[in-house]
Amino acid sequence: METNNTLLFITGGVRSGKSGFAEQLAKKISISTATKLHYLATAQSTDTEMKNRILRHKLDRQHSDVDWTTWECPINIQNLSYQFSKNDTVLLDCLTTLLTNEMFSSERNWNDPIVQDDIIMKIHNALNGLKKNVHTLLVVSNEVLNEPGYNNELITIYQRMIGILHQKIVLEASQAYLIESGIPVRMKGESL
């Protein structure tokens, strides 16, 4: 089996269909490469809406025609990289939730530029570690950079941090997709 350490990036607005597209793409890759499918979920059940969204995603995978192994890891995803091998296709959903979780997971001050840089580097390094260990890593994120910051320091900092992460990931990705109203638009790379 080819071990090419492929990185794919999928972004779009909230409820744009990006997770469904990413799951279908992961399934296609898994079947064509004979790799095992893994879902790395970063969401935490913080309210009724999020609880229902998590349940819907779980049910979608349970009713899939392929087997998924789900890993729930809202922070410190680097701790999972040793769990995977070149025989695995991993879908991380989603980067924006992971960033939020990491920003508020400790007593460190999120508005300190050094802390911000540390968080960006931690997430980027964790993704690189995952990518090195797996056949294919798909990263799903939300497109939040077009929204105004509403003169809110937290939102402005968050948008800057996710923008930096998006740029780093897309630079290294072999493919990047933007999902608009359920329609994938390939922004980088050739079709698989």
Rank of each mutant, 00 (worst) to 15 (best):
L165V: 11
D47T: 03
L92H: 01
M121E: 14
E107Y: 05
Q167K: 09
Q78H: 07
I164D: 13
T11L: 10
A43F: 05
K132R: 06
L192V: 12
L8F: 05
D88E: 10
K18S: 08
L40A: 08
S106F: 09
Q175M: 12
I123G: 02
S141G: 13
S16C: 11
V115I: 15
V144G: 00
T89P: 03
N142S: 14
H57D: 13
H57P: 04
R53P: 08
F9E: 05
I179F: 04
I183Y: 08
L154V: 14
Q44V: 03
S81G: 02
A126C: 07
N151K: 00
N101D: 06
L154Y: 14
I120D: 08
Y150N: 07
A34I: 11
N142T: 10
P113T: 15
Q116C: 12
L40R: 05
D118G: 03
I123F: 01
V144R: 00
E172C: 07
Q24R: 12
P184K: 02
L154E: 13
E180Q: 14
T33A: 07
S30N: 11
D93H: 01
D118K: 09
N128T: 14
Q167D: 13
V66F: 04
I31D: 11
K51V: 06
G13C: 12
S64D: 15
R15N: 14
V90R: 00
I114M: 11
D118N: 14
S64Y: 04
H166A: 08
L59E: 15
V185K: 07
I31N: 12
S174L: 06
T42G: 00
K131N: 12
V14K: 06
R15W: 08
G163Q: 03
L127C: 06
H57K: 02
W110D: 13
Y177N: 08
T48K: 03
H38A: 06
T35Q: 09
N79L: 13
A43M: 13
E143I: 07
L80S: 03
V115C: 11
L138M: 06
N152M: 07
E190V: 12
K86R: 01
E153C: 01
S105T: 07
I77G: 01
T69E: 05
T100D: 10
M103A: 03
K18F: 11
